[in-house]
């Protein structure tokens, strides 16, 4: 055993430790060696906790296995797991990830009382009427009138934006930032032909609305659409 390559290698870095786990051996022997390795290293560090990055290579670690490894490492006084890194993803995780970046297009009028909820970005060809609600984890683009409620970045993504050909919403939400329309909006004819876009202004953490062209300069991420 001793002249074989070690299953667990520990390297020090200036921002913490990197723990590389062999991805060819069995999980049980890996755990065994991990416990052994950590037992050997009994120096008592002074100072703050040391973050550990676990490199799992091409091994897929389940939630329970990750928890077990986290517990083993945490049982050492000065170590904690900062992140897991692996080259493999489960199909489900992959699909979720895909969904987050996908642009779903819908051709419909969302009417009062109806809710349209989408994972990722939403391109709606049609209107959102008053009393209706569109929700997306990404950005929302409405090719039509937005008169109801739009909620972009539902899971807290502040980079999400809401764009509409006619911006007349009752409420806009991006992440947990909420804004409502002013109580006296009588300039119905104003801005009829300009497409507008709402985003979170990072300096004041409030939703701002601007012409869509100015946003394009501000947020290069939008270029992903093209």
């Amino acid at each position: 055993m001793s002249n074989m390559q070690p299953l667990v290698t520990i390297r020090g870095r200036k921002d913490g430790l990197v723990l590389s786990l062999n991805d060819k051996c069995s999980y049980d022997s890996l755990i065994l060696e991990l416990k052994e390795k950590l037992l050997v290293d009994t120096r008592d560090h002074e100072g703050p906790l040391i973050p550990v990055r676990v490199e799992a290579g091409f091994r897929y670690l389940t939630k329970e296995q990750k928890d077990e490894i986290t517990d083993i490492i945490r049982s050492k006084k000065k170590l904690y797991v900062d992140e897991f890194n692996s080259h493999v993803l489960s199909k489900e995780e992959c699909e979720n990830l895909l969904k987050q970046t996908q642009l779903t297009s819908k051709t419909t009028i969302v009417r009062s009382g109806q809710v349209l909820e989408i994972e990722g970005d939403l391109l709606l060809i049609g209107d959102v009427n008053p009393g209706a609600r569109v929700i997306a984890t990404g950005s929302i683009y409405v090719m039509g009138s937005l008169r109801g409620i739009a909620h972009a970045g539902k899971n807290g993504n502040h980079d999400a934006v809401i764009a509409a050909s006619l911006m007349k919403p009752t409420q806009l939400r991006i992440g947990e930032v909420i804004s409502r329309s002013p109580d006296n909006s009588n300039d119905s004819k104003n801005g009829q032909n300009t497409m507008e876009c709402a985003f979170v202004d990072p300096t004041v953490k409030q939703i701002a609305i601007d012409r869509i062209q100015s946003l394009f300069k501000r947020n290069k991420q939008l270029a992903r659409l093209t």
């Binding site: 009417r111 009062s112 009382g113 008053p130 009393g131 209706a132």
Partner: peptide, 12 residues
């Protein structure tokens, strides 16, 4: 008009 919109949604 708001209620009509709701009904149209259900009818559709």
């Amino acid at each position: 008009v708001r209620d009509a919109d709701r009904i149209i949604g259900l009818l559709e």
